[in-house]
Each structure stands twice: as structure tokens, then as C-alpha cells.
Nucleic acid binder design. Sequence first.
DNA 1: GATGAATGAGTCTTCATTCAT
DNA 2: TATGAATGAAGACTCATTCAT
Lengths: 219, 219, 219, 219
Amino acid sequence: MGTKSKDGVRRRMPREVRERQMLDAAVVGFARHGYQAASMDEIAEQAGVSKPLVYLYLKSKEDLFTACLRRERAALVEAVRGGTQERQVSAEQQLWKGLCAFFAHTAARPDGWAMLHRAATQGEPFADEVAGMRAEITELVRLLLSRAAEDAGCDSEFAEREVSGLAHAMVGAAESLAEWANAREGDAPSAKETAATLMNFCWTGLGRMTEGARWSPHR
Amino acid sequence: MGTKSKDGVRRRMPREVRERQMLDAAVVGFARHGYQAASMDEIAEQAGVSKPLVYLYLKSKEDLFTACLRRERAALVEAVRGGTQERQVSAEQQLWKGLCAFFAHTAARPDGWAMLHRAATQGEPFADEVAGMRAEITELVRLLLSRAAEDAGCDSEFAEREVSGLAHAMVGAAESLAEWANAREGDAPSAKETAATLMNFCWTGLGRMTEGARWSPHR
Amino acid sequence: MGTKSKDGVRRRMPREVRERQMLDAAVVGFARHGYQAASMDEIAEQAGVSKPLVYLYLKSKEDLFTACLRRERAALVEAVRGGTQERQVSAEQQLWKGLCAFFAHTAARPDGWAMLHRAATQGEPFADEVAGMRAEITELVRLLLSRAAEDAGCDSEFAEREVSGLAHAMVGAAESLAEWANAREGDAPSAKETAATLMNFCWTGLGRMTEGARWSPHR
Amino acid sequence: MGTKSKDGVRRRMPREVRERQMLDAAVVGFARHGYQAASMDEIAEQAGVSKPLVYLYLKSKEDLFTACLRRERAALVEAVRGGTQERQVSAEQQLWKGLCAFFAHTAARPDGWAMLHRAATQGEPFADEVAGMRAEITELVRLLLSRAAEDAGCDSEFAEREVSGLAHAMVGAAESLAEWANAREGDAPSAKETAATLMNFCWTGLGRMTEGARWSPHR
DNA sequence: GATGAATGAGTCTTCATTCAT
DNA sequence: TATGAATGAAGACTCATTCAT
């Protein structure tokens, strides 16, 4: 139980390393059980460390959770931003790259993503942190949609509020797809496949909207 | 504290009524704090009943949660089904009606919806129940999309798997929009507005897909 | 262990009674070990109750301590006041009665007194409560000394500050004597004996002071 | 953090010096928080040393406390003895000198005195040590009082037990006054003033007692 | 039908103390 | 000499749950 050297004694490790191990274990625990149900005992054991050490390094359960949150959030945002940063390409291409990066990341770090996703529905203490992340990503998407509209020569009628709603829908759809893709074992679709599904789903509609067309219930 | 008659004595009420009060209180508690953080004490007090009575009627916290889940699930599914049941109309119209019903319901019972939504990320004991509901709704959507494809004379190329993904994306988008709409205070959009946003977003793309067109990264 | 009925089952008791038992046990615990070292587990066991009940009724260790403090303080102050209340008699007689009452009380409730005494040197949270009690008693003594001076036709030279110091000395001496008397087992002096010791010690000096005489190091 | 030389490296210091630093820090800690609440972490940090070093030098918290106790006790007793040692002068003058020395010392080392004073109400482990000190000082006073009685030609009626009580009262009064004097900020009385207050208070009474007079409640 | 009284089991958190270097 | 790394043991506190009336 825990990281041991060859002669069965637990190794001393630099703080940095141990801290990473703890965060790793914590992410798994929080992802699987949620904030409340996750137990510090289990996390410590999973990290191969005694509980006091966890408290020495990470102060409290709340702080530990926040630290995990921040790390995973940073990793995710960076991944998504990475695909969106090239200024040369069109908004369409950027969105595509971003989606690919998103699905690749969520597939590569399923526990990290699960934790972030669950965190959205945990209690107040983390509302801000989580809302912040969601806002960050949604804003990213909103900007892209907005720019796509501009590229298409769309006038200001394509109001802020409408784009906002679309961005939220998009993010929700992406999250749901990520969950769905991760849930499959064996025949999980590739990140690109999933991203393509989403692009297929919405891009045309978005294009038509920029042209001023609106869907209406009457016919 | 609690429901009292004019002379200060707690009223004896038929089981049915008391049970509803408990479920109501529980839904609020679970919605606001999540399963783990919600406390039986608080729920009992909120329901105006002593704790032992809650246990007498609902057996355990887990059972109470499940009961809430089932009730809210049934209400939501029924609401959505209501808009989709008319066999005469087109799949498009049915989807539209269903979305309207969904957003209307989530707006009318925010706590119920919040609980269902949170439940999706609570621990294992309820995974089945919640997954069941999600599957039920997703299946509903999947059928509609499938039928829309058929209506459009689309052949079987529009494979099961692709539609499945779309249905998940759709449901995720709807959930996200519902959350977004509920979060707004004051200028919350109407159910129809929200539904229209979503239809705009996806319906055209869906149409094009049924025609065999696919979005592709290369141009 | 704990209060049991004849058939070995722990009895249900009205809250009031149980609360008193808890306070009794807590006073003993706090008196013997001090605030920090006293354990809630031990207190609960001593009271013949489970820990949660202690928390249900008394909220927290700090609150429990405060409750004990208040109860013992009230009892002590009332006891001392009782001997001092008769307005007819001289200050001298009142002081005498007060001292007798004080020593009688501290002898009758050694744990209560020990707790109060220890509390004076526990940490900040209780500083106010304890300081308040000390101030209350010291003020009582100060008034008596002041009045004794008046009775002796002493002018205002017998300044406030000087009386204040005397009152503190008096209280300190009394506390020390109480401790000393309680520590003896077997040949403990009676309350009256102890009170007489103190009166002997200080009353003449006090009298001379009111006449304007002062002790001085030079002869 | 800690004593560092100019180039930022912690200085190697002779054991003696380090040990003094630790005791100094410990006295402050124990004085402020009491034995239980004082933390070894804080003490080590305050001393500018790592915790293992504290354990290397002082073995355990209990030993550390005892060491502090002994040091402060020795310092206090020596200070008081210093004023009492001259055999030439009268018991009265010796008592006066002793009191002056006591109040001067407690004012000069408030933390040391606070620690000693608090120690009197800490748990069993130190009861002996503390009782020892109290006994030492009380005995000192008792001897003086006894000698004063002798000087006054008082016969053995002035029984041992009576003097014992008086000594305890005296010590208690002195402690209380020391506390009271230390608590004042700004207008704190000088050691001599405080000592004079106490002499005024008791010396006359003591004189009368040696003459056989006794205070009695009946007139 | 309804509840005040009561608890077993478990959680987070802290602290004095010791290795290994 | 001196310390960063690490932990066993214990304490405060809470919660779902049940008895006895």
C-alpha cells in the first residue's frame, strides 16, 4: 500500500512530487464520489500517504478540492485554447480545432473531466470557481460564434443574446457528448468523430441564422 | 413549526397528503444541497413533520431520494411526452412541441429539475435510476430524429450511431439551456423562445444531414 | 455505565434533567483537566449519555464550557451576595458574612470552584465571561471596603485606586485560602475558621488605613 | 524565518544558546496559550529552529514545559530570596524587600510569571513541580511571618496552622496584585507602590495578632 | 398517527513525535 | 549540527437511524 522502495520502506519524496500524487488521487476520488462523499481517508490511502501529510500540504478538504479544480480547469482550458489560438484561420476552423481538442482532452483525462463536470453541481463553496470555468469556456465559444457571424457579413441583428444562448447550447451539447463518448467502452468514437458529429449538428444551422433565416413553428 | 390547526395542535393528516409534503420538502433540499449534503433533519423540519415519521413513510434517505427522483422523472417525462404524443403531426412539429414542453416544465418546477439534473452526478446508488431517465428522454429524441430522417426519405446510411450522438447532443444542449434560462432572473426567456433557439441551432443542420451532406474539416 | 433502569435499559429522561447531568459531568471534567484537556467523550460517558446527545443539547464544547461557567458563576455570586444583602448591618459584618458564604460555597462545591478558578487561566474565548465574574466579585468587595471607609468617617483621600488594589488583594487572598482549605483532606478548617483568618489578616490594617496611617519602609 | 547569518544560511550555534532561545520561545507560548493549547510547531518557529531540534534538545513537550517551569521558578525564587537574605534586618524589612523584589520580577518578566501562574492550574503532570514552587515561596513567607511573631515576643499560641493560613493568604494576595498590576497598561503602579499596598493591608493586622488580639464576628 | 429521546458509526482535522538524510 | 518528510493516535463534531411512549 503506497509507494515503497525495494526494501519495503516508504520513500521520502520531494514535496512537489507528493503533492502531484495527492492531487491525482483526489481527482479520482472526487470524480467518482463527488465532493461530499469522497473521503480524505480514501484519498490519502490512494495517494500512498498518511492523512496528516495531505493536510500538511493541502490544508483542508475544501482547499484540496479547489486545487484539483484549478489544475483540471487550467489543463482543460489550455487544451481548448491551444486549438483556437491561431489567428490566421477562420472561426469555423478554430471551432473545429477547439472541439477536437476538447474531446481529445476529456477522453485522455476522463477522471479530470468527470470531476469538473460533477463540480458544477456541488455546493456553494465552489460555485464561483466552477461558474468561472464554465463562463470562460462559454465565452470562448461565444466569441467564435460571434466572429463566424461577422465573417459571414452578418449585421448586428444577430443579437448578443441570441449568440449567448447558442454558445450555452453548444457547450451543453459538447459536455453531453463527452460524457456519452467516455461512457462507451470498447467502441468509443474518436475525438474527431465526436467533434464532427457536433459540427454537423450545428454548423449549417448557424450559417443559415447568420443569413437572417429563423426557424419558426408555423411551417 | 409545522402545520398546526388553530388550537396549536399538529393536524392529523391522511398519509397521502403528508407524504406529498415530505417529497416536496425533500425535492427542495436535494435540489439545493445535493444528495449527500441534504439533511434529513432539515427535510423533516421543512415538511413540518418529525423525523421518525419521515422514516415511517419513506424508509430511508436513499428511498426518499429515489421516490423524489421517480416522481420528478415521471412528471418531466409525462410533460415532454404530452407534446410528442399526437401521431398526426410531423416529427419536426413533435420535436418542437416536446422542447416547448420541456422548457416550460423546467421553468415551472425549477427545484424538481435541479434535483434531476444534480442527480445525474450523484453517486452510484442512483446511477441506474438516473441513467434510466436520461435514456428515456434521449430515446424519445432519438426516435423523433430518426423519424424525421425517414420523413425526409433518408436511407439507412444515416446510421443508428450517428443519430444516437445527435440525440445526446440535443439533450445536453437542452439541459444546458434550461439551466441558463433558469439562472436568469428578471429577463428570463420564455419557454418558446428557448425552444426556438435550439430549433434554429440544429434543425437546418439536421435537415442537411438527412440529405447526405456532411461537414468536413477540409474546407 | 450511565443511568439505567432496573432491566438494564437506559432510561429516557426529560431534557431538563439530562442537561443538568451533563453540566455536572462537564464541571467535573473541566475542573480536573482544564478546558483543552477535558474530552467530550469522557464527559459524555461520565454523564451516562452518548456524545451526540451532548452536542444536541449543548451545541459545542465551547458552549458547554460557557454554560458550566455561567451556572457556577451564578451559584457562587448568589451565595456571596446572599450574605451581603442585608442593608442594616455594618460593612464589616457584611464582609464577614460574604467571606463565610464564599468559603462555605467553595467547600461545598469544590469542582465548581476549581473550574471557575482554572477558567481564569484558560484561553481567550472565555476571557470575557471569567473576567466578568472576577470583576463582579471584586466590585462587590470594593464596595464593601469603600463603605467601611465611609463608616469610619474617612475622607476621599482613601482614593479609588487604593481601594481597588485592596479589593484585588483580598479576592486573591480568599481564592488562595479556598484552594488551600480544599486541598486539605481530613483536617480541613471550617468556612468560618478560614474566614476568620482572613478577617484577622486584613481588617485591622484596613481600619488603620482609613485613619490615614500608612505603612512605610522607613521604620 | 529563524536566525540567519548574512549569507542566508542558518547559523550553527552552541547548544547552550539554542537551548535558551527555545526556552524563551516556549515560555512565551505556554504563557499565552497554556500547556495544552501551546503548539510545538509554533514554539519551534518562534525559536527559529526546526522541530526535530527542539526534540533533540528537550526530549518532549512535557520536558520542555518542565524545563521552562524550573528556569522561571528558579529566577523568581532567587529574585525574592535576594531581598530576604540579609540576616541583619528585621523580618518586616525582609518581607518588604521580598515583596518589592517579587513585584519587580513579575513586572520585568511578565511572560515568565504568567506561565508560572497558569501552570498552577494545568494538569497533573506538573502538579508536583508547581506545588513545589508554591510551597517554596509560601514557606519563605511563613518563616518571615513566624520570625516577625518571635521578634514581637509572641508565644507559641500563634500557632503553626494560623501562620500557615496567613502565608497562603499573603501569597494569594501578592499573585492577584501582580496580575492586576501587569494587566494595566500605561498607568501600571511601580513595584514599590504595589508592595506598599500589600504591606498596608496586612502588616498592622499581623502585628495585632502577635499581640494576641483576634477579630471576632461578635462586635 | 406521531414524536421526544437517544445513539453507532463515521468524518474532518490536529498534534506530538520520529525517520532518513 | 540540523532538517524536510512523514505518521499514529486521538479529538471535536455530524448524521442517518431507531426506541419507547
